[in-house]
Amino acid sequence: MTPDTEEALAETIKGAQAPLAIKGGGTRGMMIEGDTLSVSGISGISLYEPGALTIVAKAGTPLSEINAALAAENQRLAFEPMDHRVLMGTVGEPTIGGVIAANVSGPRRIQGGAARDYALGVRYVDGSGAIVKNGGRVMKNVTGYDLVKLMSGAFGTLGVLTEVALKVLPTPETQGTLLLRGLDDAQSVRAMSAAMGSPYEVSGAAHCAQIMEDGAVTALRVEGFETSVSYRLERLKELLSPICTDVTIGDAALTEWVWRSVRDAELWKDVPEDIWRISCKPSDAPMLMARSGAVGWYFDWAGGLIWVRMPPGGDLRTNLGEFDGHATLVRASDETRAVLPTFHPQKPGVAKIAAGLRARFDPRGILNANLMASV
């Protein structure tokens, strides 16, 4: 089923007699029970006002189309969404609706916030087939309940997005990356924490033992005007000299490659292990990896996000035990997915609230049924 208007989508959901698997670009590789309901036919940029830093697009609009329109005006999406196709081995085109529904946010989140922080307004169809609009086209619009934030990260379980309004930002003149070599996990977190606490506006902080293929590298990105970028990189180098003396500066081209690799986990596209991601307190990252049983990992978000390679079928959550955060299974065999849920089990209080929301927005339980039942 591929309705091409919001009204047709509403009628499809209203008349559904069985669970529906909501599909955008299909690039995340999720297996969802039910009849496939694609929003790819509800596509197109509805409004773009570069002077107001605002773009409005229908949910099925390919991300590439939005990026091209923004690039023509020297603007970009601020939250740097991941492209899952390389890691997941999928095809198709990521859509803006899928990005917002999953709150897909890349390395720049540590500086500017997540995808949901740039969503100004949404239109969606709930589980009863009702068309709902919330938010607006300016940041100050806070009338009523903030359903914009609620829909961002709900993975289509509360409603099917049909249109999103987003704040965008200018593209900086240039970028550079400070590369610190030879640090262990604990030292890297110290360095990244110091950088993030500095006045030098770091827009990316990652640590990986393999990305440069010659030992551990901690990467710190700075963006802006060329003279400012050069100045801030030198100041960061001085600031971090007590932690690391083997420091180099990567130019804009190297910076582009490094952060695309970090964002998309590109170097893990052909590895045989299961892929997980952990959200946690940065200070906990080294401890969590020490007890993870993982065969490889790297830190993003200054240690607040960990990408993990686990032996096939390995239960990372059991190995980690209780911690302040959550672990999500990103890529695994069908056999492993049948045993291990994608999302981290919720605590009882949160689970009760989540169940109440689903009952309110999707009383028949037909939208991506059971996808987040164990979140």
Rank of each mutant, 00 (worst) to 15 (best):
L236N: 00
R260V: 04
D334A: 15
F155A: 09
G121Y: 12
A354P: 00
T54S: 09
M192H: 02
I131G: 00
P242K: 09
G176D: 11
G314T: 13
W268Y: 08
I243H: 06
P172E: 10
L9P: 01
R109C: 03
A102R: 10
W301D: 06
R123M: 09
V99Y: 11
A209F: 12
L236C: 00
T342K: 10
L63W: 12
N141Q: 05
R85L: 06
T90E: 13
M30N: 07
D300V: 02
T54F: 11
G349F: 14
V56D: 08
G365D: 03
S188D: 09
K23Q: 15
M289Y: 05
E49F: 11
A209Q: 13
T143D: 05
E6S: 11
L316Q: 01
T227C: 00
E6K: 12
S230V: 10
E226I: 12
R291F: 03
L240G: 01
I22D: 08
Q111T: 00
S128P: 00
L178Q: 04
A219I: 04
L180S: 05
L357G: 02
L53R: 14
V217C: 14
G34H: 07
I110S: 00
A119C: 15
A205H: 06
F343C: 00
R109F: 06
R331G: 04
E273A: 09
E322S: 14
V132A: 03
N368F: 07
I110P: 00
L9K: 02
I306R: 03
I353S: 03
G365S: 03
G121S: 09
E163S: 02
R221A: 11
Y298C: 09
I96Q: 10
G224C: 07
I243Q: 06
T95K: 03
R317Q: 10
F343K: 01
V125R: 02
P282M: 11
P348D: 13
G106F: 07
Y200N: 02
D184F: 07
W301P: 01
T245E: 15
V164L: 06
V339M: 15
K23L: 15
L178M: 06
A332L: 04
E173Y: 07
S283N: 11
S152Q: 05
A216C: 04
A69Q: 07
A195F: 04
I353Q: 07
E163V: 05
R108G: 02
P199H: 09
I275C: 05
D83S: 01
G92Q: 04
T328L: 12
V330R: 09
P282R: 08
L147D: 02
